[in-house]
Design a protein around this nucleic acid. Sequence first.
DNA 1: GGCACCCATTTTGTCTACAATCTTAGAACC
DNA 2: GGTTCTAAGATTGTAGACAAAATGGGTGCC
Lengths: 233, 233
Amino acid sequence: MSSALESASPVAEAEAAVDQRVTDLIRDAIIRGEYVPNQRLVEADLGDVFSASRATVRIALLQLAAEGLVERLPHRGSRVRAISLEEAIEILEVRIGVEGLCAAKTAASISDEDAEALGRLRSQLIESVAEGDLVEYARLNRYLDVRVRELSNHATASDVLARLHAQSVRHQFKLSSRPQRAKISVLEHAAIIDAVVARDPAAAEQAVRSHLLSVIDALRSLSTSEPGAPADS
Amino acid sequence: MSSALESASPVAEAEAAVDQRVTDLIRDAIIRGEYVPNQRLVEADLGDVFSASRATVRIALLQLAAEGLVERLPHRGSRVRAISLEEAIEILEVRIGVEGLCAAKTAASISDEDAEALGRLRSQLIESVAEGDLVEYARLNRYLDVRVRELSNHATASDVLARLHAQSVRHQFKLSSRPQRAKISVLEHAAIIDAVVARDPAAAEQAVRSHLLSVIDALRSLSTSEPGAPADS
DNA sequence: GGCACCCATTTTGTCTACAATCTTAGAACC
DNA sequence: GGTTCTAAGATTGTAGACAAAATGGGTGCC
């Protein structure tokens, strides 16, 4: 029965997303903040905007709901999921374990060239903060995260992290736009890179842990200093 | 704009699944092993079996693909995803971090009654193994996992774990059906319960780690002793 | 004035039909 | 005999239409 499928490799994983044009467009719009938390996402409207049928949009929304970006209420529609501070902290707590694993794996297996590249990235990070270029710093930060995931060669962890990351983009953003915060976090990032380049898995895991715990603290104090501004719409 | 949705609580999460009848049926069938890995899942056929339209089945398959239970190849259909040994180990590695977190959280906040209940569960586990009732032992085991997740009160971690668990059911099953293995793992489980009941987060996290590392070892040696039997169909 | 009920509107959930794509088998050709 | 092209079959992707559910406003009643 069906000879063609039998022989396909179990590697694929990523390329499977081909026609998910609409899904990607909506996801990007949410992540970019074009659609704000709690905003309603009416299937017909979105189909109109992206010139796709309702069936396509519907599938996209279900997909995004599975990713945790969208909330669906039966017979009542979809809306952009609002990630509360508590949830954001939960996400960071989970990331401690998973990113720690990635960092450890990377430290254990990194190649010489990749290690060198990370070293350069380290310099760039420090430089961007010194120049006060927070946008560039945020970009390099994201790149570091992605790179460590890739280098860990851990598909499962990468999947989990990608999902978690997408959900908490908004909260991350609030933090990374603070110059004060950048000066602290850049040191922590440098420490992570140092441990990885030194090929010390335990130290890398610990460095990630320290960093994320620090982020949690920062989020907490940020929220107490400027009390709940839940009105996003 | 839209007053009804604005006030909905961000808790829901679970009850959102109402009409997912078909999704649940297919998921159960896969987890129970009714549909074996690599088996093709043709939308029209499934619609016939579950007396639903293709559109409904299609959505169910996309949902399951997002959960990692089903693999979709564009224009070529869906099939039950085969979790390789490497992937199963990856999943366990991730679980170390996340379940460790849950255990630590639970240990830090467990109530007296819940602690007592866990103590009783501990006795039942030991008893079931002593009597050689592996089916009962497996059931209790699942319950322990679920319970620790619940008690941790950590929605994000629970979500991640639920997803990972569903994927690796098959491999878990292979292990838990070995009497030899049960005798080892029951001690580890008892250690986890002890640490949680003693309200020692660090010890609980460590006990989980030890246990899962031991499972990884067991899986590895199991696969070397009975070399690749990839023919599931 | 407030409360319960009912109906119109909006939006989702489901089904059927059509188009696009891929696979497979067979025939023509070298 | 083997290879390439072509066409038929099977299966997925998309669109549009209908049915079901929930919301919101309005009317009647107390």
